[in-house]
Design a binder for these strands. Structure first.
Lengths: 201, 201
DNA sequence: TTTTTATATTGAACAATGTTCATTTCCGCA
DNA sequence: TGCGGAAATGAACATTGTTCAATATAAAAA
């Protein structure tokens, strides 16, 4: 078969991404293969490679969608309470998103693929966005001239929450045990912030 | 070729594990293939499968060795100062180990392989050991009747440190930026502990 | 010492993967 | 109507994990 007009290039791109996302969400990133996607959309393997450089590229675009969704999700959280309340709300939204998208989000937390090649800038920018929300939330604790220190504290804290999330996903490790990861993250947040406040006083 | 007497079964096991560990440390977990190991030790592929169930099983045993080494490393840290000092010492030892074994340790932090099959108990036990040291260190802050709460705090904190370590390993994400991950973890530890102390007072 | 038994070792074989690219087919345009 | 360029194909190649019948040899028996 040769050239078709079933879908425009953009439609095809969306079709592939939708399908890939569905596969990852339902069966995990390991189930994402070029042949599988091509079969599901009714095109041949080669078509996937007309649209993406390689499988890593495709999975990176799937991850990018998930990052977009996460950003939208935490952007929708009402803010403006005191710092503690804001962070707890952020955390709730984060774990809410995580439990709703365990496989797609899990594929991001894994540091896999890319064979050591650096991640492209457009992707790094998407990773940075959710962090920026956290940094914003931290700002009141340091005042407008404390941007750098607020940034640092925000990064530290959110890497910490991230660590709990990772552990929770590999429930097999039983590190989190029967505790709720969400509560654990709350506990980390509250004590970290209290520590920061105590340091100022 | 048939039966040989070059190595006993145990010698062969050690030979395979040594070789596999070397490969993972030098080139990362992705470079660990059955054929590669068999070639390096001068046996055929089949021999690997005489010794291990499959590749996952082999890599699990390599990871187990790394966990043993980490446990020994942090066990050697002198303890008994105040809680803050002890934790900072633990943290220093942890990041020291991490920077000395980035690939082997990184392969543990990744949650990969095992296709969703649960990890075997003997492996989970090895994962729990380093955590137990952390829990021990936390105990003085809660007193002898506060074991459970100390455990919980220790798990929370160390998952947090773990998150920073993961982020630091994927330096490509630039989340940690030019900050030292070690310092970041120190910062998290100190403020978390200060928060705990402030909550008691 | 010779024969037999048991088993450690082999490597060909199979299925599945990512990736390439010459070939084919068809859309759009003159 | 015919033509040029591009989209779509799928066979082909290299590599992977994994299996298992065949085989060579050490150990035991005769």
């Amino acid at each position: 078969m040769g050239r078709r007009s079933d879908h425009s290039r953009d439609e095809l791109l969306a079709l592939v991404l939708d399908t890939a996302e569905k596969i990852v969400e339902q069966e995990g990133i390991a189930a994402l293969t070029a042949r599988r996607v091509s079969k599901e959309i009714g095109y041949s393997v080669g078509t996937i490679y007309n649209l993406f450089d390689n499988l890593d590229d495709l999975s990176l675009h799937v991850k990018a969608r998930t990052l977009d969704a996460l950003y939208a999700h935490i952007r929708a959280v009402p803010m403006g309470q005191d710092v503690e309340q804001d962070f707890l709300a952020l955390n709730a939204a984060y774990f809410d998103f995580l439990s709703g998208n365990p496989n797609t989000w899990g594929s991001i937390l894994e540091r896999v693929g890319a064979d050591g090649r650096p991640l492209p800038d457009w992707y790094l920018a998407k990773v940075a966005l959710p962090f920026s929300v956290v940094a914003e939330t931290m700002l009141p604790l340091f005042g407008p001239d404390g941007r750098d220190r607020a940034d640092y504290a925000a990064h530290t804290l959110w890497c910490g929450v991230h660590g709990i999330a990772v552990m929770a996903m590999e429930d097999s490790l039983e590190v989190v045990g029967n505790h709720s990861a969400r509560e654990m993250a709350d506990f980390l947040i509250l004590n970290f912030l209290r520590g920061l406040r105590a340091a100022k006083a």
